[in-house]
Write a protein that binds this DNA or RNA. Structure first.
Lengths: 286, 286
DNA sequence: TTGTATGCGTTATCAA
DNA sequence: TTGATAACGCATACAA
């Protein structure tokens, strides 16, 4: 203890890792850090990683299959003890890699299409069904649309399932998760006579809102919007956007906690954790 | 090559690291991932880290001295080959740790108070002076305010220096980098008769804008706003916010590139890189 | 060029 | 309980 002070000794993590075959490092695969949804998940992940003394190795996947694969590969070569996967549409390729890799994986705010991995999510079907229900009161089905990712991911399917459960005759539109894509879509929505939308991604929702407002349509009088991630964004617009809320920080935190259990071979009672969502009424609905 | 395929052999990064005393891992200290300014820097960092085959180990510092210290400590124990520091106000503590640690450090979008480390930034004095100049045309000095972080960091000093260079009789207000803090400050600004503000942080700027608008003040007619980070946020508000633009992705990228040079002991010609900024006129100024 | 031993800083094993 | 020693998987230096 004396010497440890005097020499400012610090254990060498690599030697430790080599000998114990544990790195106390987890990989975090994330599509895009500038997407606030994932950023907030990441904060939750980081927070509990700290508590359990894990470092987190970042791997931005851009949501494309190749980068995703490479991200997972470098994580593996780094001998991470586990990985948190985020992404709306995991490629078949990475799914295969993951199942065959033997490192524990948990999905955070992302749905595993085959249900092979533990995951933490909200009940998307229920959430989208409820959101659709709010709009049903004011408009006929055919005037209400779901704006979803162009991918045909399991997540998209769940959202659609919930949406159609409440609105069997609702419409669907595709737009990538970008502000400008939403803005561009606004034109089509208006010309198609759509009166209300549920939007899968916040940035897209803001884009739609701005297009609609820029074209002098009154919100919520003549057009209503419900967003479904409830990031900081939707509180910053005017009118502010009503939204399904998700406990994003907690989703990340619980996912990471789950992973720590897996990494220490503890039993996991329920591998598919569902956290509660809510609905916040703001100014784009009434 | 045959065997490498058959056995799906992957080199063990730890053994490699132990033997070569290189980890091909860099640490990234970031105050808050949900701050889009840092998120965009991080994307730039990650992009060139990939190119040079470095992994990046994430360490969220919350901008507080203790967490910052711990972040740096765990990075060191992980034997990272270098670290990218981000943060508006590095504590004395971490500065000391860094100088005494012998691992290469570069500051990205963050100013080193003592100029001891290589860094990548814009010319804050110039940028804030120019921004202030735009407002000077329309209002008298005493009606124009700089909204800055409450910390008295070197960065804040530079901003102030630029601001006062153009507006010797300008005012200053403090607000933490949060939407709500900006919103709250809005009240004081209006009651003090302020007519135009330059805001150091985007989220704060949006808060001010919304307060002002919510209280039926016309923007830009009766109140003008200039933001200075130009994150996605400022394009999403209505009116959209005029802003000093920063090449955030590039700042991160160049910082990481610089770090790779340092890590391979190459000479670095200019350790304090200044990247060009611009000004984008949007709807909160005229 | 190809092969062989030694060291990297720990953990883990086994003996004392 | 303590102490010595063999892995851990790769680099590196040296010998063949």
């Amino acid at each position: 203890m004396q010497a440890i002070k005097e020499l400012d000794y610090r254990p060498n993590a690599m030697a430790k890792g080599l000998a114990s075959s544990k790195t106390t490092m987890v990989g975090m695969i994330v599509p895009d850090l500038t997407n606030l949804y994932y950023a907030e998940l990441a904060q939750g992940i980081d927070a509990v990683a700290k508590i359990y003394n894990y470092s987190v190795s970042l791997a931005v996947s851009d949501g494309n299959a190749k980068a995703e694969r490479e991200a997972f590969d470098t994580l593996r070569s780094k001998q991470v003890d586990g990985v948190i996967y985020m992404g709306s549409n995991p490629s078949d390729e990475i799914m295969q890699l993951m199942v065959s890799s033997s490192v524990p994986v948990v999905f955070a705010g992302s749905v595993d299409p085959e249900g092979k991995f533990p995951s933490v999510n909200i009940d998307y079907i229920q959430a989208f069904s409820e959101a659709a229900g709010k709009l049903k009161e004011n408009f006929e089905d055919s005037k209400i649309a779901l704006v979803e990712d162009p991918d045909n991911s399991k997540l998209s399917q769940l959202r659609r399932q919930g949406f159609f459960k409440a609105l069997p005759n609702g419409k669907t539109y595709q737009a990538e998760d970008e502000y400008q894509m939403g803005y561009n879509l606004g034109r089509r929505l208006l010309s198609d006579g759509i009166k209300a939308v549920i939007v899968a991604e916040d940035a897209t929702a803001v884009g739609i809102l701005n297009y609609v407002r820029d074209n002098h349509v009154e919100v919520p009088e003549d057009f209503q919007i419900i967003s479904t991630s409830d990031t900081k964004l939707v509180k910053m617009t005017r009118p502010s956007i009503s939204s399904v809320t998700q406990p994003k920080f907690d989703i990340g935190a619980v996912a990471m906690r789950l992973l720590t259990k897996l990494m220490s071979n503890q039993e996991v009672s329920d591998p598919a954790v569902i956290l509660p969502h809510e609905f916040v009424l703001r100014e784009t609905t009434k």
